[in-house]
Design a protein around this nucleic acid. Structure first.
Lengths: 343, 343
DNA sequence: ACTGGCACTCTGGATGACGGAGTGCCAAGA
DNA sequence: TCTTGGCACTCCGTCATCCAGAGTGCCAGT
């Protein structure tokens, strides 16, 4: 705020114009070209003075003496924060999103379609996280006896996700016990949030005969494990071919980015940093992961109802169309949320 | 065969040397360098004559007058077919493969690890297909009543894969009927190949009361559908960052390749063309898909026992280390087969 | 505070010279 | 008949040079 006092409205307008032009042309933008394309109502010389100030403050940068100016990360940051609005999707675009996602047949398909759609809309790399288990509720728990001592646990969540686990029981469990356990599990845990379940089922073994308690405990601990497991969170990416649209900084930047995108861990951390509510934009060096230092990440949470169950976003060059990208990301996130709520 | 009569042993040796050198250096290879690095026992002039013949026959090619020679697709083909052997993995490498894959905890993990491993070993893009449903057998079928008229079908295969389907029944089904159906399904279909199942269950509705037959039929048709569904075949890729190791032909070739790799359909077709037994190498223009015209694909089937359940392979530049790549692909495929058989 | 003018700087592309690597061919030798 | 050394030739990649264009910073004038 203190620094920005030095920047009057026109200087901000100049910065805005620089960002817009640079995003369009991908080339350093000079004072003359600026006044031609935006009607700033002043002469190039004046703009040059403003540019000098902006450069002093670190918002723009000159690749070489006597070249045009390029926004810095800090410049983009100011642009995103104060100089622009999220650009809403047009009606046609919204309809396209709807018709594309409406045809999804199951959760996998929703995620797959979302990532494709987002990549197409933004022409960048899309990243979509599967709805996480930890925030969902239990729809159903099923137990299947494979052998007397081996039981398969199938967990069905409200987002339509299915998890299965094999359990080796210390003792044989009869079908009666299994049916009893099954019905108790579903009565108590059905519809409950994952976090609540362990507490709710804590004293369940006591309801069973001593000889069966070992097996019951084994089932429970496997269930809790499955519920708690964060590592199962999956991220799907798409549109990596869009990376090649920048013949520019090639292949200097593309290799680390591709590597980052293949690392589930990195992606999860990336999306994990997104606040539950509101959109997050991380620009260049604001990204903790080094390989993404020359990219920006726009991400947002999505969910059924008012609950955030996962995140999605896009990765692109710092020189990206922020308003458009943010609009697309937000629109897609909202629509996916609706779909999840409906199904 | 007819053409090859013109190629005596030394000419073939020259071709082999050219391929090996070019793969190593990535630069057109000349006669002088050839005789220095391989002891061919003849002079550069002689080699030049041989090269002229090889070029006439279309095995090598000269980028420009007075440049070295580069193998053509046809040249690589001859090299792979007749001039080299699959290079077996060293003991250390085999142990590494084993220890890496042995830590896999479930099917997803096996596939994920395999794709990583293959990408690392070959330093190229790895492609692994999930074990296909159609060749597997049924381990267990589970029916879960969600509401009186909604049933969830869970299908567990011998490869550890789980498929679920929601079924809306025309009439309410009681738990007794469901239990009956469940046990009949498992008795008749358990352990059977997918293809056999429809025949085996064909007359199942007749065993039930008339009022329940609608529901039974609904369940059966969903089950058959899930069994038949080929579209569920999934392909996982990894190591796409390796594409950037060819700063050479950039980004001309990389973009279409990345696009191809994101298209499940293309990948499935690619792997689908692999013969069930034996390794397949498709070189450059031998690939039907245009975007892969400057890449080679080495693929092979893998499976538990002697049955091929899916394919895996790698995609790389035509200029690749064929013996090494083929060795790695074969070794990994074998080991994955063993793991699947054991679990 | 803005503007026009001016000298200066730097890049990117074009041009041309040059060394090096590689070839093809020929005549001589095994 | 096959191989070899020699030789003239071709072409690429690199480097240095040059030039026009774009852009800047500064200054003096309004």
């Amino acid at each position: 705020m203190l620094e920005e006092r030095k920047l009057d409205d026109r200087k901000l307008a100049v910065l805005r114009a620089i960002v817009q032009d640079y995003v369009g042309t991908e080339e350093p933008v000079g004072s003359k070209a600026l006044v031609e394309r935006h009607n700033l109502g002043v002469s190039p010389a004046t703009v040059r003075n403003d540019m000098a100030t902006l450069e002093d403050e670190g918002y723009i940068h000159q690749p070489h003496t006597s070249a045009g100016r390029v926004p810095t990360d800090k410049g983009y940051r100011l642009f995103v924060d104060r100089l622009t609005e999220v650009k809403p999707m047009s009606g046609a675009e919204r309809r396209a999103i709807g018709s594309f996602l409406d045809h999804a047949v199951d959760l996998d398909d929703v995620v797959a379609r979302t990532v494709r759609l987002l990549a197409q809309l933004t022409r960048q790399v899309a990243v979509v996280q599967y709805p996480s288990l930890s925030r969902s509720t239990v729809r159903h728990v099923e137990l299947v006896a494979l052998t007397p001592t081996r039981v398969m646990l199938v967990l069905i969540t409200d987002t339509g996700r299915v998890e299965q686990r094999l359990i080796d029981c210390p003792t044989a469990v009869g079908e009666t016990v299994l049916a009893d356990l099954r019905s108790r599990l579903n009565t108590r845990a059905g519809g409950q949030r994952f976090v609540e379940v362990p507490t709710l089922l804590q004293d369940l073994p006591e309801a069973f005969d001593r000889e069966d308690r070992g097996a019951v405990t084994a089932v429970l601990s496997t269930l809790f494990e499955a519920l708690a497991e964060q590592t199962e969170e999956r991220v799907v990416i798409g549109g990596s071919a869009n990376l090649t649209r920048f013949p520019h900084d090639f292949p200097l930047t593309i290799a680390p980015v591709l590597e980052a995108l293949e690392e589930q861990v990195v992606l999860l951390k990336l999306l994990g940093e997104t606040a539950d509510a509101g959109m997050m934009v991380r620009i260049g060096h604001e990204n903790a992961y080094e390989g993404l230092n020359s990219t920006s990440v726009v991400s947002v949470g999505y969910g059924s109802g008012d609950e955030t169950v996962a995140k999605l976003g896009v990765v692109g060059p710092t020189r990206m169309d922020y308003p458009g990208t943010m609009g697309a990301v937000r629109a897609v996130a909202r629509y996916v949320g609706q779909i999840l709520a409906a199904s």
